[in-house]
Design a protein around this nucleic acid. Structure first.
Length: 305
DNA sequence: ACGCCTACCTGCTTGC
DNA sequence: TGCAAGCAGGTAGGCG
């Protein structure tokens, strides 16, 4: 479930609790969790003795910045979680990678479905503008810098630079449906299925709308709604449905505040009509057929009172 | 550019 | 009660 607010919550927790700590040892219980570029055995060796400088986030990935400049990336995907455990805490059968700190605590990477991936990269390139560098055929992609991981990601929706005007630019000429675009990480980084549905409900936009059919006012509504749902998600420490927990191991409080996600058939909080569920781009999509009418799909002038 | 499919995995819910 | 099918927050890669 981790989308931007959930990942941000985990990153802030870790920053508070393990910044400055030193990794004494690493146990990899599911090798495929350790992704490119190094194999699992080397990963453990290379991390031993490393100290954590700070913990941040880019898109839906947790960034563990080491004092020596390297960066460990943790992509939680569907069911990943990073949990700080006190010495003597009961074992977790779903802990795929365990980082034991010198003070005896552990950072446990827990992941029921094993989709998540952890990598270790040279630093650099994160703040650079993501210009797609052309690579010659056969040229090696190494040395991997952490910035390369995000070279194709879109802007951070909560960054200062992400204005309504910028969103408008990015929407222009795109014929994809709004819902699909919001989920596209190269369009905007960090929005997932939950927050996409919530943002569209707040903005009163039908998920099937073609992205380039929005009026300037609708773009502003969308821009404001996306930022609002993400900020509120962070304030509530994320939305928990089954697996998501913060680094304290506790679920977030945001699930009960959602207006449409997984509320199929329940009354719309604005108009009382039942929330509908459809499938868009293979993803379940929840919306209010009355507040987010499909009838307004193309006509921009049909909303006279 | 875009939509659609498959794959990666396990656990929980649903329906017979 | 048992059991199989269907479903789930994400993303990468392949095809048309």
């Amino acid at each position: 479930m981790p989308e931007l607010p959930e990942v941000e919550t985990v990153a802030r927790d870790l920053q508070r609790w393990v910044a400055g700590a030193t990794i004494a040892g690493v146990a990899v219980h599911w090798e495929r969790t350790i992704a490119h570029p190094q194999p699992a055995e080397r990963f453990a060796v290379e991390l031993r003795g490393a100290s954590i400088a700070r913990v941040g986030r880019r898109a839906k990935t947790v960034l563990v910045h080491l004092v020596d400049g390297r960066v460990m990336t943790v992509a939680l995907r569907m069911t990943g979680a990073l949990i700080v455990a006190r010495p003597g805490a009961p074992e977790d059968p779903y802990a795929r990678v365990v980082f034991t700190l010198e003070d005896g605590r552990q950072i446990r990477y827990r992941d029921v479905r094993k989709f998540g991936r952890i990598g270790l990269f040279a630093g650099g390139g994160l703040r650079r503008r993501p210009v797609a560098r052309r690579r010659r055929v056969g040229e090696r992609a190494a040395p991997y810098r952490v910035g390369d991981v995000f070279a194709r990601h879109g802007p951070e929706p909560l960054a200062r630079g992400f204005s309504a005007a910028r969103l408008q630019q990015r929407l222009a000429g795109r014929s994809a449906r709004l819902k699909s675009l919001l989920l596209d990480q190269s369009f905007i980084a960090g929005v997932g299925n939950i927050y996409a549905d919530e943002a569209l409900w707040i903005a009163r936009l039908n998920p099937l709308r073609g992205a380039d059919t929005l009026t300037p006012d609708e773009v502003r509504r969308l821009h404001r709604a996306v930022r609002k749902v993400l900020r509120e998600g962070i304030q509530n420490r994320g939305a928990s449905f089954s697996d998501y927990v913060g680094a304290d191991g506790e679920p977030g409080a945001n699930a009960e505040r959602l207006a449409v996600y997984q509320r199929t058939g329940a009354p719309c909080l604005r108009c009382g009509r039942p929330i509908a569920r459809i499938v868009v781009g293979q993803r379940s999509t929840h919306f209010c057929p009355r507040c987010q009418p499909a009838a307004a799909l193309l006509s921009t002038a049909a909303s006279a009172p």
